[in-house]
Design a protein around this nucleic acid. Structure first.
Lengths: 135, 135
DNA sequence: ATAACATCCGTACTATGGTACGGAGTCAAG
DNA sequence: CTTGACTCCGTACCATAGTACGGATGTTAT
């Protein structure tokens, strides 16, 4: 159970301190009690493994294309009972990912054609707009 | 050579009129002369096939992950002589796309596991954070 | 115990890619 | 010859996801 400060948490999650604080403001990460009690200027907050896991989850879910709002919902679901909702969100995202992957693959093919067309040693402009035309 | 208004151009490109105007402001699309001459309140601008192709290129390049700034550069290159630069931009984007596609594929696999874990009829919370953990 | 550095927190600012508003001008149909 | 739809243009506003600032406070090493 490595306890750390906000900078350590940020490092573990591969983000900046300000980003952690931003996620706290958005309600995606908790803000642990300051050790010196509440109201007064109470000391430095400590973070644990759960926070690190949670932060890493946020980043991973982002690469999956979830928005921070959706990630908030997923985090709420993680604690809740609504398996059906979780299942639905996952399915929806898979469909969106499949579309996106297909789109990127098509774009890749166009770029390959473009690189090919512009890669020759012959002079003059290469038809960039046209290279994307024949999709 | 179908001549059209800004609304027609927008329709052909699958965007809104305001988006066309935004691209004009960004310098990605030209702003044709108003027919009634310059200074006075001169009439309605007309757009042609070249504009439509250019707009469609912008949208396609966006799906390839180019930013609007980069697209501006590509459009400039389309008219220019710098084949090498065009080739470089295309290659760079292909590398980025390959990374992105791999990332999305990994995310898809995680989501499939998640959907599976939460899809069973058993009760209780499903471990959403954990489903993404074992990347 | 003091310097150096980190944390805390509110607030403000940034980048990207649009979207909306409102008043004035233009144009085609009835 | 007016009505209604569309255009023009500047300006303002929006969502998303951060990033920066700066003063007060807390912690640690010398």
């Amino acid at each position: 159970m490595k306890e750390t400060t906000i900078a350590g948490l940020a490092r573990e999650g591969g983000v900046g301190v300000e980003t952690v604080r931003y996620y706290q403001r958005r309600g995606l990460l908790g803000t642990p009690q300051r050790p010196g009690g509440v109201g007064l200027g109470g000391g430095i907050r400590r973070y644990g493994d759960d926070d690190i896991r949670r932060l890493r989850f946020i980043r991973t879910a982002q690469t999956a294309g979830f928005t921070l709002d959706e990630i908030g919902e997923l985090l709420a679901l993680d604690a809740g009972e609504d398996r059906h909702r979780a299942h639905t969100l996952a399915r929806e995202r898979i469909v969106a990912l499949d579309e996106k992957i297909a789109e990127l693959s098509a774009a890749r093919a166009s770029l390959l054609r473009l690189a090919d067309a512009c890669g020759s040693t012959s002079k003059g402009p290469c038809p960039i707009i046209t290279a994307f035309d024949l999709e």
